[in-house]
Simulated scan of single mutants.
Amino acid sequence: MPLIILSLFIGLPLIELYFLIQVGDEIGALPTIALSILTAIIGTWLVRLQGFGLLMRVREVMDRGEVPALEMLDGALILVAGLFLLLPGFLTDGLGFLLLVPPFRRWMVSRFVRVVPAQGHPGQPAGQGPRVIEGDYRRED
Results as ranks from 00 to 15, higher is better:
residue 3 L to P: 02
residue 4 I to Q: 12
residue 5 I to M: 10
residue 5 I to K: 11
residue 7 S to I: 00
residue 9 F to C: 12
residue 12 L to D: 14
residue 12 L to G: 08
residue 12 L to N: 07
residue 13 P to S: 06
residue 16 E to R: 02
residue 19 F to S: 05
residue 20 L to E: 12
residue 20 L to C: 08
residue 21 I to N: 13
residue 21 I to Q: 14
residue 24 G to E: 08
residue 25 D to F: 00
residue 26 E to H: 09
residue 28 G to N: 09
residue 31 P to E: 06
residue 32 T to N: 13
residue 33 I to C: 10
residue 36 S to W: 02
residue 38 L to G: 13
residue 39 T to S: 15
residue 40 A to R: 05
residue 41 I to P: 02
residue 42 I to M: 08
residue 42 I to D: 13
residue 43 G to D: 01
residue 46 L to W: 06
residue 49 L to H: 15
residue 49 L to T: 13
residue 50 Q to Y: 08
residue 53 G to P: 01
residue 54 L to F: 03
residue 55 L to E: 14
residue 55 L to G: 14
residue 55 L to T: 10
residue 56 M to H: 14
residue 57 R to K: 11
residue 58 V to Y: 04
residue 59 R to P: 00
residue 60 E to L: 01
residue 61 V to G: 12
residue 71 E to G: 05
residue 72 M to S: 14
residue 72 M to Q: 12
residue 73 L to R: 08
residue 74 D to G: 06
residue 75 G to I: 03
residue 76 A to Y: 09
residue 78 I to K: 00
residue 79 L to T: 03
residue 79 L to Y: 07
residue 81 A to I: 02
residue 81 A to Y: 04
residue 81 A to S: 12
residue 84 F to E: 07
residue 84 F to S: 07
residue 85 L to C: 04
residue 86 L to E: 10
residue 87 L to F: 07
residue 87 L to E: 12
residue 88 P to M: 02
residue 90 F to D: 04
residue 90 F to R: 04
residue 92 T to V: 11
residue 93 D to V: 00
residue 94 G to V: 02
residue 95 L to M: 14
residue 97 F to I: 03
residue 102 P to K: 11
residue 102 P to Q: 11
residue 104 F to I: 13
residue 105 R to I: 04
residue 107 W to S: 07
residue 109 V to I: 13
residue 110 S to A: 15
residue 111 R to L: 14
residue 113 V to E: 15
residue 113 V to D: 15
residue 114 R to K: 13
residue 117 P to H: 05
residue 118 A to S: 13
residue 120 G to V: 03
residue 123 G to K: 05
residue 124 Q to N: 09
residue 126 A to W: 05
residue 127 G to R: 03
residue 128 Q to P: 01
residue 129 G to P: 00
residue 129 G to N: 01
residue 129 G to Q: 03
residue 130 P to W: 05
residue 131 R to S: 12
residue 135 G to A: 11
residue 136 D to W: 07
residue 137 Y to F: 14
residue 138 R to K: 10
residue 138 R to P: 00
residue 140 E to S: 08
